[in-house]
Nucleic acid binder design. Structure first.
Lengths: 244, 244
DNA sequence: GAAATTTCTGACGCTGCGTCAATAATTGAC
DNA sequence: GTCAATTATTGACGCAGCGTCAGAAATTTC
């Protein structure tokens, strides 16, 4: 049925349109500024129409978050390919993370809102499931590198951890530092002057603590991160552009 | 003026009473269930009276968070004293963190609510300041151990990090893992079976990565954590009791 | 014991969510 | 091309909850 699919395309189109309008409001003014009335009047549609697309405000945030996490996933995928040693590709994922946080600030912010208990709890389990899937997808990209590294002997057997638990530590430290950086306006005042470089160093030391080859020196590590950063930046930007 | 101070004591008393009533609502049913009307009717006071104590709902959460963070600070203080090597005392703070997350679940939850941007932004800068102070206090307890360790030679000079930046990594990894554990209902499904033990191991490896003496083996580390746990548990419980 | 002051009260105005009966647009059978 | 049936859109409405403030009640002061 050509007609039905045209209609459906129109509807999908409008769903995207709603998200396009909602996003800057959420980013610039926060969740409480994102009211259905406001959204409706900006869209030149009635409120009821918006409710045909999303059962509530919260669901709009989750829909935005799904988009955001898909972008994250793509960046991770891009970063994890290639034929360099796994540890180098792992570092590239770290760089992708930094890129995401710093250059895809809107998506990063949306992810923060998504983790808000008020918002999460009011959303449909369907969208929650999709988000968890994205999360698992990102996890798997990294866990695959760990498995590969174990197989290659770059990393010694983790007697006490699953590969996913190995990843969990890295996830926790990057995620934790990003939240703290975002929510603590005065890290400077606490004596933390360069959180990004700090976390780079900690990741290096952590991986060294696991005896992960082939990097030993912190200096070498930091230099490599810079090189990877420069090399991948255009690719990441390309992915970001395509994502629109 | 005895009279004035009696009056003032009564008012302070009621402020505490409001917090006492508000806390279980927030914990059990979340922020949106914490309505001023409900609070007022449970207290058998009118809404206006509550507004004499707190300018808005959000401020109540921050007041609860201040209490929570004071408890955290006390636990950290307790953990950091004694004459064992700094790394052991650092591990004890780690144990205190675990205790806080697991045994002071209400306080831990309140801290989560406090980090909610909606809530934080609507609160007075005065209470925000106090919270940042508590945060800084906790940071300092740990940073002091780092400084001490450097002085003792247990830890080699950190050419590229301030002591606070050294702490930031530990903070990020424990904080990050706690948030992920709390907000990801399906860590299990992701392949993370024992997040607590996982993070213990990561902390050990991280500190080893920094060459922090005197622990080398992971097994020894995990055993020590268990011992410290058992030893400090009663003290922590005592502090928790006194905190009411 | 009465005036002055402080404290308490809850009805009120307002905002914003989500609904649904009424209205408009689209479709497809003839 | 027409019209009944179906589908989509609309915005007024009911409701909940925030924060206010004019007046009532209690307390203090003289």
């Amino acid at each position: 049925m050509v007609e039905i699919s045209r209609k459906q395309r129109e509807i999908q189109q409008r769903t995207r349109e709603i998200l396009r309008v909602a996003k800057p409001i959420l980013i610039a003014e926060g969740f409480q500024a994102l009211t259905m009335d406001r959204l409706a009047s900006r869209m030149e549609y009635a409120k009821g129409t918006i409710y045909n697309h999303f059962p509530n405000k919260e669901e709009i945030v989750l829909a935005l978050a799904i988009e955001a996490m898909k972008l994250r996933h793509k960046l991770f995928d891009q970063a994890s390919t290639g034929d360099r040693p796994a540890r180098i590709r792992l570092m590239t994922i770290g760089v992708a993370c930094e890129f995401y946080t710093q250059r895809c600030t809107e998506e990063f912010q949306v992810e923060q809102w998504m983790r808000n208990a008020n918002i999460w709890d009011k959303s449909s389990s369907e969208r929650q499931r999709i988000i968890r899937e994205c999360e698992a997808g990102c996890m798997q990209v990294v866990a695959r590198l760990v498995r590969e590294s174990l197989a290659q002997g770059e990393l010694l057997a983790l007697d006490h951890l699953t590969p996913e638990e190995m990843v969990f530590g890295l996830w926790a430290i990057t995620f934790g530092s990003q939240i703290l950086t975002a929510s603590s306006p005065s890290l400077q005042a606490l004596g933390v002057f360069d959180p990004i470089r700090t976390i780079r160093i900690h990741c290096c030391r952590l991986l060294n603590g696991f005896g992960w080859q082939p990097i030993q020196s912190e200096k070498e590590y930091l230099k490599l991160v810079e090189e990877i950063s420069a090399e991948y930046f255009p690719q990441f930007e390309q992915i970001q552009r395509e994502h629109r």
